[in-house]
Every structure is written in C-alpha cells, then in structure tokens.
Design a protein around this nucleic acid. Structure first.
Length: 505
RNA sequence: GCUCGUAUAGUGUAGUGGCCCAUCAUAAAGGACUCUCAUUCCUUUGACCCGGGUUCAAAUCCCGGUACGAGCACCA
C-alpha cells in the first residue's frame, strides 16, 4: 500500500489529492409530497402549562418548514382532558405569545379543540352510522383482556342503530365516566395490540373537573381522546404534513386506520426522537406544575426551570433556540444534549450588542495612592467603538476590587493603572502598562452602587452581592460583565447570569 | 412479554453503493489577537455497535445478534 502510494506520488500526484467534499446539506430535509404554497403544518401542545424547552423544537421545525414552503402554520390547543392533564387558563394566551416570540411571527391560525366538540361529535356519529365504530360498555379491564386475547368484545356486533341510541345516551349523561366509550373498529388480530379497536371518545365528569375555559366549563361530558380529536382536526384543517415525536408513531397508525374508514388521505408524517438535556434530565409540564404548587420553584419562570419563559428571562435569544433545534434536525435517535451548545449559539446571538459593564463581586474597598488622571474612559464594547465610551470620574480616591483578586500583590486595573496592593491601599506604580501583571476589573467608588448578581448553580439560585457600575441600560438588556460573562438586566435592577455553570459532580 | 423504532468522534450531526483514509458544529487541549477568564481567528485530538451475507465495490443494501428508546391509558 505504502509502496503504491509512493509510486503514485511520483507518477500521478493529482490522484492523491483530496477531492472536494460533497456539499453538506443545508437546513432541514425536504418534505415528501410538498408543493410550494400548499403545505399546512400544525403544532399542538396541551395548554396544561406554558411552553418548555422541548416545545421549542416543535415550534421551530414547523415554522421553518412553513417558511421553506410558504405554507400555513397552525397552533392548536389539544385541551381535551380536564382531569389527568387539565389545561391552565392563563396558558392559552401565554403560549401564543411565546410562539410568536420564538418564531418571530404570529401563527397563521389558532385552533382550540375544546371549541370544536360539535365537529368531533358529528364525525363520531358518522362513524357509528357507517358501522366502523361502536359504543363499548366493557370496563377498561375487560376490554384489555379482549385486546390481549384477540377476541371481540360483545359490544362490537351491535347494529348502527343500537350504537346511535347508546351514543345519544352518552350525550344525555346516561353513563358515568368509564361506563361507555366509543371505539374505532379495526381488527382484533392486528399485530400491534395498541391498535386493536382503539378508543375514540370517552366520558369525563366535568362537574367534578370542569374545563378551565369559562365558555366550556361543564357543558360537555363526552370528550374525544387525542388520537381521534387530532385525526379529525388535522383533516378539517387540511393539514398536509405532521412532524412530531416518535412516541406518537402508534398514534399515526391508529389514525391512518381511521382515515381509511373515512376515505381520507393521511398527512405525510415525520418523527423526532426524545431529547434530554444533560443538565436537566427529562422534564414534564405536569411535574413542573406539581413542583411549583408544592413551592419547590418560584413560578413558571423560575430560572431553574426549563420553560421558555425562564430561558427568555435569563437572556436566551429566540435566534439561539432556533439555531439549536435546527442543528439537531429531525432524527429518530434519542439524544442527550448539553446546554453548552445552546449557550454557544446564544453567545453568537448576543455578543455584538452586549454593552460591557463592570460588576465587582464581594467588593473590597481600596484607597488609591499616587498620581493619576481625574477620569478614565473605557469602551462600551471593545470591538465596536461606535457604541461609545464609559467615563469614570474620580471624586474620591476609593476603588472597589473583587475579593478573589486581592490576594495577588501586583495587578493591572483594566484600562487604568498598574498598582501594588497592601493593607487596603492600592499604590499606583504606573499609568502606562509596564508589567505583565494580571488584568483585573474594578470600579471607582464614585461610579458604583450596591448590586445583586443572580446565578443558578447546581439547581440553586445564588445571590451574589457586589458593586455594580452605574448604567442606564433598560430591563431586558443583555450586558457582558467583564471577566464574568453575559447577564440580563432584570426588572428590579439586579443581574441574571445568562449561561449557568454546573460544577462537575 | 407483544408491537414499533433507532444505532457515525465526549456530545450532536452530514452521508441513501464507488466522489469517504467520512462533513459540520459543539466540547476539550494548545496557540494568535486582545488592557476581560469575553469576542474573533488558527491548530490538534477524536467516530461508522457486533457478526455474517450480497457486490468488482458497503457507513450506505439484506439477515442475525446486542444496546437503547417508545407504544401496548377511558393522558397529551
């Protein structure tokens, strides 16, 4: 082999040159059967809480396809469970706002499932009339045995008119939750047990568990299950492509069977795998809700929580989230990603516009000794002088230094002077930079006030007090604290570290 | 248990039989620039789960194994 190579090197070196590599695919993979301008996509969260980090994937991917194909993006609230995962009234509005923030535009259409029960009823009736659905009065346990044994349950052979009568009974409240359910007829010997005569609508006690939307409240007792509601709604809205988690694969199969009964064409479907974040592990809206109610967290935008609002409050940009999710793309692999990747995107999104600011943690006062100018000018941003200058005038010779820095004897006060430190005195040895002393950040007492820096570390919120440079940045501005990192100015004037760090276990 | 799905550097990802001694990002290490431990730039390290088969040719196709994940709810 080596011999051959040496021959080639002499005789035909061009054969050894690396050929140019295939261009790397840009953006998301093409959708199958997609026509420009005719793609309809939807993202359907349960409004049982505000959006979390994981939801951002659905929003970003669907919205990106919408842009690629000049299509329609529907935000749909699948709020058909009032007991196990009850919707939260405030979440409806918040989710629309968060989706708009993340994608940079409002959804083309907002659909609320609980507004559309009549449509689902109508299709349930069609199903019963045409004999591909039936009202089943078996208990869940009894049916489970039929499912396992591949045997028909006694209700399966009822005539359409019997089914319709029973259905009217369901609507009138003749049955309690669990006593009757509408099933879609498939085959009881299908290979996948999950698909066998799956349930489409059930009864919920909305007196005990009213729907939180006042216009719905306790009006209805018969509610569709996700597989049915989603399938019918996708058809009604003309959805052409569905991108969703692979946990819903069986749902697709169930729904395809239903579509065949109705004679509809099922949308093209793409799946992604499960995503975990190293720092958070798994997370669920229901669990977060419990923890908040138990007082373990301080509301939905507690910085320790992986909600979109918490991320936003910490200064994570919509652009960074978008880049992050697009980079992961759509694979069915279950993955675990570090937050560092998100932070890298966020740094890129934020750095150019982040004014520099000095924050001296655990500040220690020093007296300045020696000749020096009466003011110092430091740039707002070292790479963009157009952003202006910060001017610090000395009204007294007092400066603040960080506790961790004062162990060093000789330091360079950034942009100012070389000093020697001892006994809370900082003696100026030179204004020009003569030595390679470590450069530290600092503040003149006349330009600093008490400040608080908030940082989440190891799932704890830490409040670090110190001296903060005077500034006029509005709440919401992302600044860079010199030698510390990016932080967001909060409403109360404190600063929140954007990119949390975790100690190695 | 049954059903379905997935396996490429530490983490993600590109790759659809020959442009592959495998792409890009991120992380790590080193360096340049810099009056920040920032930004920017450069360099280096580092991977096709295992075993068979098909083929002139396999990361790519087929079979088997293994690992991981999901579904088997009158949740979404």
């Amino acid at each position: 082999m080596d011999h051959l190579r040496s021959i080639l090197e002499n005789e035909a070196p061009h054969l050894l040159e690396k050929r140019s590599t295939k261009p790397r695919k840009e953006g998301l993979t093409e959708l199958t059967n997609a026509t420009q301008g005719e793609v309809v996509l939807r993202f359907a969260p349960n409004p049982n809480g505000p959006l979390s980090f994981g939801h951002a994937r659905g929003l970003v991917i669907n919205n990106t396809y919408r842009e690629m194909y000049d299509g329609v993006f529907i935000l749909r609230f699948d709020d058909t469970d009032t007991k196990v995962k009850p919707p939260m009234l405030e979440a409806y509005e918040q989710i629309v706002e968060e989706a708009t923030w993340l994608t940079g535009r409002a959804p083309d259409r907002v659909v609320i499932a609980s507004d559309r029960l009549e449509h689902y009823y109508k299709h349930a009736e069609q199903m019963l009339e045409n004999g591909f659905g039936y009202v089943c009065r078996c208990s869940a346990d009894a049916f489970r045995e039929h499912r396992q044994a591949k045997t028909n349950c006694p209700c399966r052979d009822q005539s359409p008119s019997d089914n319709l009568t029973l259905w009217k009974g369901m609507l009138k409240g003749a049955y309690k939750p669990g006593d009757a359910v509408v099933r879609v007829k498939t085959e009881m010997d299908l290979k996948n047990p999950a698909l066998r005569d799956w349930p489409a609508l059930r009864i919920q006690d909305t007196k005990a568990h009213p729907h939180p939307r006042p216009e719905v409240g306790s009006t209805y007792d018969v509610w569709p299950l996700l597989d049915f509601q989603s399938a019918v709604e996708d058809h009604l809205q003309g959805v052409t492509h569905i991108v969703r988690g692979k946990d819903l694969m069986d749902s697709t199969r169930k729904q395809t069977l239903l579509y065949e009964h109705f004679g509809w064409k099922y949308p093209e479907t793409l799946y992604w795998g499960r995503v975990k974040v190293h720092e958070w592990g798994g997370f669920s809206t229901s669990q977060m809700r419990k923890d908040i109610e138990a007082g373990r967290y301080d509301g939905w935008n507690d910085p320790r929580l992986p909600t979109l609002s918490a991320l936003k409050d910490r200064g994570i940009q919509a652009k960074a989230l978008e880049q992050f999710w697009l980079e992961l793309g759509i694979t069915q692999k279950d993955i675990s990603v570090p937050l560092a990747t998100l932070y890298a995107h966020n740094t890129k999104a934020v750095d150019d516009d982040a004014p520099r600011l000095s924050f001296v943690r655990n500040a220690v006062a020093f007296k300045l000794e020696g000749e020096h100018p009466t003011e110092v000018k430091v740039p707002v941003h070292p790479n963009h002088q157009t952003m202006g200058w910060r001017t610090w005038k000395f009204s007294e010779n007092a400066v603040w230094l960080e506790a961790d820095d004062i162990e060093k004897m000789d330091v360079r006060l950034k942009e100012f002077a070389d000093v020697e430190l001892h006994d809370n005195e900082a003696r100026i040895t030179s204004i020009e930079r003569h030595h390679s002393h470590p450069v530290i950040h600092w503040l003149p007492a006349s330009h600093a006030s008490e400040g608080i820096l908030l940082e989440t570390k190891n799932n704890q919120i830490q409040r670090i007090s110190g001296q903060l440079e005077h500034h006029t940045h509005e709440a919401g501005t992302i600044v860079q604290l010199e030698r510390i990192g990016y932080a967001r100015v909060m409403d109360d004037g404190s600063l929140m570290v954007c990119h949390e760090t975790t100690d190695e276990p």
